[in-house]
């Protein structure tokens, strides 16, 4: 199969990217709501509104990560194996955080005792924050490069993953998800609570822009292989334009009270950021440093062309159907949150 000169490996590089982008955009606002949970929602009723804003959808959103993991396993088994065994403790922490986040949403409002609710509120917030930070740190390491030996195995340590660049990427991700979550909440809440949520949007946008600018400077200075694609093909810089416009559009739409358009802008900005990340890293899936020749790429880490072809058929059948019913389900749950007896 041939897609206008694209080979199957590149197609799968893009598809895995699409799945993780779907995850970042969709679970990004769930996690962002979690990050804001303790700070913005104070009374029990408000916290229930926050949880019910994401209640019907967070579960389906998390599936993007699970499917992304499965697709990575199928299309690039060597990457799946090296990254998850190499980042062992970091991933165990991520899994633990995601477990707490998930069950906290489900369990919190099922019992009225204050201590019970307080415990799960904290679990939800801490689980969301830790997951977000670790996702950012992982992406930071992928871009920065990690030590890979000649067998293709990770040769670094857990603490070695926590270098300043990766942590900066982690902080950037937290601010981005918090911003995205706040915009989503503005869409789903009303009255006094919405006013309080709206106040947080601009500071979060500024925090995100500051950390992203710092991150970009660091990338330009210290991560030359990521910027190389842009030097080689300067027209890739046009990717930056829609991201800047989308982010600039957010406060404008929020001021006009058009939260839905603000939310769409935020989604578009995140898609653009992921595209920039993908273009910068292609063809590397895991960049190796200090030995770039050991890097895992879309070509040396991939499954056989036969499997990539079969998987593409599966994706082409499955993804449109998934998108169609996911959109319908979002449509059913449109509008402001109303607490009823089935609510969390």
């Amino acid at each position: 199969m041939n897609f206008g000169g694209l080979d199957l490996n590149t197609v799968w590089f893009v598809l895995v990217g699409v799945l993780f982008t779907g995850y970042v955009i969709l679970d990004g606002f769930d996690l962002g709501v979690g990050v804001l949970h303790l700070f913005v929602a104070r009374r029990d009723e408000e916290r229930r509104v926050f949880l019910n804003a994401i209640g019907p959808v967070w579960d389906g959103n998390e599936v993007w990560l699970v499917t992304g993991g499965g697709a990575l396993f199928a299309a690039f088994p060597a990457v799946y194996a090296t990254v998850f065994s190499g980042f062992y403790l970091a991933f165990m922490l991520l899994l633990c955080a995601l477990i707490f986040r998930a069950v906290a949403i489900e369990f919190r409002s099922k019992h009225p005792a204050q201590q019970w609710r307080c415990f799960w509120d904290r679990s939800f917030a801490l689980g969301s924050f830790t997951s977000t930070l670790l996702i950012g740190v992982a992406m930071g390491n992928i871009a920065w490069g990690v030590p890979i030996d000649a067998r293709g195995e990770f040769a670094g340590t857990f603490l070695g993953l926590l270098h300043p660049y990766a942590l900066l990427m982690g902080v950037t991700t937290v601010t981005l998800f918090a911003m995205h979550g706040a915009i989503y909440l503005a869409l789903k809440t009303e009255g006094e609570l919405q006013a309080r949520v709206r106040e947080r949007i601009n500071p979060l946008i500024i925090a995100f822009i500051l950390s992203y600018v710092l991150l970009t400077l660091a990338t330009l200075l210290y991560v030359p292989h990521v910027t190389e694609a842009f030097r080689r093909e300067p027209w890739f810089f046009t990717l930056v334009v829609p991201v800047v416009l989308a982010i600039a559009n957010i406060p404008r739409e929020v001021n006009r009270g058009r939260e839905f358009y603000a939310f769409l802008s935020s989604c578009a900005a995140m898609a653009g950021l992921m595209a920039i990340f993908g273009v910068g890293n292609y063809p590397y899936l895991v960049y190796s440093q200090p030995f770039p020749e050991h890097s895992l790429t879309a070509f040396n880490a991939a499954s056989s062309p036969k499997t990539l072809g079969i998987m593409l058929t599966i994706a082409l059948i499955g993804l449109p159907v998934v998108l169609a019913y996911s959109i319908s389900i979002y449509w059913i749950f449109r509008g402001k949150v109303r607490i009823d007896k089935m609510s969390y």
């Binding site: 389906g60 396993f73 199928a74 299309a75 499955g318």
Partner: peptide, 25 residues
Amino acid sequence: GDVFGSALAAEGIFAFFLESGFLAV
């Protein structure tokens, strides 16, 4: 990965999305 991974990915696309999407309804 070439064999087992595809079954796992198919599970994600065909099963998990369906299950958790409609669970909301």
